[in-house]
Amino acid sequence: MSVLNIQNLEVSYQNQPVIKKLNLQIEPGEIVALFGPSGGGKSTVLKAVAGLLEDVSGTVNIGDTLVLSDKLNLPTEKRNVGLIFQDYALFPHLTVEENVAFGLGHLPKEERLERVTEMLALIKLSSSRGKYPHQLSGGQQQRIAIVRALACKPNILLFDEAFSNIDPQFRFELIADIRTLLKDQNTSALFVTHNQDEAFAFCDRIAVLNEGQIEQIDTAERLFNYPKTRFVAEFLGEGLWLRTQVASAHRLSSELGEIAYCGESSIESMVGQYVDIYLRPHHLRLEFSLDSKIKVTKERFVGQYFESTIEWFGQSIKVRTVYSFLDKTVKIKVDTNVSAVFLEHPSAP
């Protein structure tokens, strides 16, 4: 049974639909990201799940509890969810211990203290129980915020851009720690972010949200390599659109030469047809060529490689090169083993 089951969720602001018939299920212990551009409705979904919005319709089940339906919009405090924010939302007037114990008022004192001790031990911050939030680092504060939520034994944790305030140097270390913690506790989480690296590092599955709708939901690797829509392909990283003709089940011919095709969809039945494929920068390499008209217009040295920018039929793409190609004419070569392409039928050959 899903921990979170969203069916046909719709949210409007001032009569403008922000979320349109959204469906999403999260399984026990699973961490799912809502990933997409700003204004796409990610935080709105989170707030709707938490019960912080009023103008909402659809059905939401958290665990075995129906929290939203046509006749019901259960208040936040009755939904048993934990919320984690980018500003940590620790109560500044309370100590670490008091913060963690904040939602445990219904428990006897001894049990409450035991739970707090247990939670602080999980994040190895037992020695900081008497400190105030401002005496802790950002990472420590976020750990406290997470165990404060975990202390209430929520059905699901909701993360709203929760790591964006953490120093990049320590961010992924923290993300790994929190992921381990959640997996150990078998706690499910819904994580809202616009940062691809965070979503990839933290989540089991990623739902790409665009204009209030989920375009695709899958693992990070499959989203990147097998995008199902043009938006997902482009949003997950820059690339080059190339018009090709299907030569055989595993071959595409193009202006850049023959390309080996190892994609998921079968193209056997499309021999002779034109398709557009999306090539990532790592599929491409540059070679000097005196008779080519393609020129490297910009270049940036980034340490282990150069990032060379080329313009090709109105498209601009950055390609990693070992040598400097600035102002030189080049030929674009495609790696023979292109396994990750997005196929789209062009409107006209």
Binding site: L52, T76, E77, L83, G103, C152, P154
Partner: peptide, 27 residues
Amino acid sequence: ISPSLDMVSKTMGQGGVKLLSKVHLPL
């Protein structure tokens, strides 16, 4: 006061008058 404090407080069952007395008034 960050609005997130209110939301967090509500998720932990401390809304309404409790939110006022335990979070807002001290702050």
